[in-house]
């Protein structure tokens, strides 16, 4: 089973990095958003309850990271639909490899791609105005990895059930993008109206954003963020649950 999963994992990485369009398509748009929105809103943005000045470029950094992870894992899981259409999947499904290995390989491969792309963006952390410690770096990377596994599993479950890539895009626009927007990625949770705040608290992506923000700037003391340990715990639980859900969806049928 591990051999089969490792095979599909390797294939996912090969396919991604061989396709320059996908590498750029998943990386450049979020970075452009970050630069344009960050520069445009710039200092007119004030994060409530902060000691020092936090510009939008800095605030939006964690959101951009999450967007890269989201875009990459979404593009990667969409390939399940193509695999089905182009016929690659049929050969995998009649091989002795278990369904669990298929899910594991695909989700691990797509998460790894999302994680590595996010890691590349994390190199700009100083340009964004953060100066995290080594442990801050590591915790941010961990939060990103967990988010990546969660979002990829969710994408996988949706893609497995989608009949076409168009249908997947529709679900993604209706569901995955709002999930990102309402996570504290674009605007802080504490300035949102109460009903929205409730939605944002339920949204698992919020905890990914919170964990990244806190690990990069622990001293800033942004009010309204859940405790780092709690964020990571919730993130881990959610990712595990979503991965199990993806495995369940794929093993029926």
């Amino acid at each position: 089973m591990i051999l089969a999963a490792a095979t599909l994992f390797e294939r996912e990485l090969l396919r991604f990095y061989r396709d320059r369009g996908r590498v750029i398509g998943a990386f450049l748009p979020p970075v452009l958003f970050w630069l344009l929105l960050g520069s445009g809103l710039g200092s007119s943005f004030r994060l409530p309850g902060t000691a020092g000045p936090v510009g939008f470029l800095q605030f939006f950094f964690a959101g951009t990271l999450m967007l890269i992870v989201l875009f990459t894992s979404v593009f990667a899981t969409i390939s399940i639909i193509e695999d089905r259409k182009e016929g690659f999947l049929q050969a995998v499904l009649v091989s002795p490899s278990s369904r669990l290995a298929v899910v594991l390989g695909k989700v691990a491969g797509a998460s790894a791609v999302g994680f590595l792309q996010g890691l590349a963006f994390l190199l700009f952390v100083r340009q964004a105005g953060f100066s995290p410690s080594l442990s801050g770096w590591l915790v941010a990377a961990l939060a990103m990895l967990l988010s990546s596994v969660g979002l990829t599993s969710l994408g996988f479950a949706i893609a497995w059930k989608s009949s076409s890539t168009q249908a997947f895009h529709a679900v993604m626009n209706l569901f995955l993008l709002p999930l990102w927007m309402l996570s504290g990625a674009v605007f802080p949770i504490q300035t949102a109206p109460p009903w929205l705040r409730l939605v944002m608290r339920i949204n698992p992506v919020s905890y990914g954003i919170a964990a990244i923000q806190e690990s990069l700037a622990p001293a800033q003391g942004i009010a309204g963020l859940p405790h780092l340990g709690a964020s990571l715990a919730i993130l881990t639980l959610m990712s595990a649950a979503l991965a199990a859900f993806a495995a369940l969806i794929a093993s029926r049928e």
């Binding site: 051999l3 089969a4 490792a6 095979t7 390797e10 294939r11 090969l14 396919r15 061989r18 396709d19 182009e86 016929g87 690659f88 049929q90 050969a91 995998v92 009649v94 091989s95 002795p96 490899s97």
Partner: peptide
Amino acid sequence: GVVFQHPSLDLKLTVNENIRFQGRLYG
């Protein structure tokens, strides 16, 4: 050994990779 009517090749991979990956799926 199964040969489908619709091709099951991964067109983005090389011939060698396609064959090798298949072998690994069969252990």
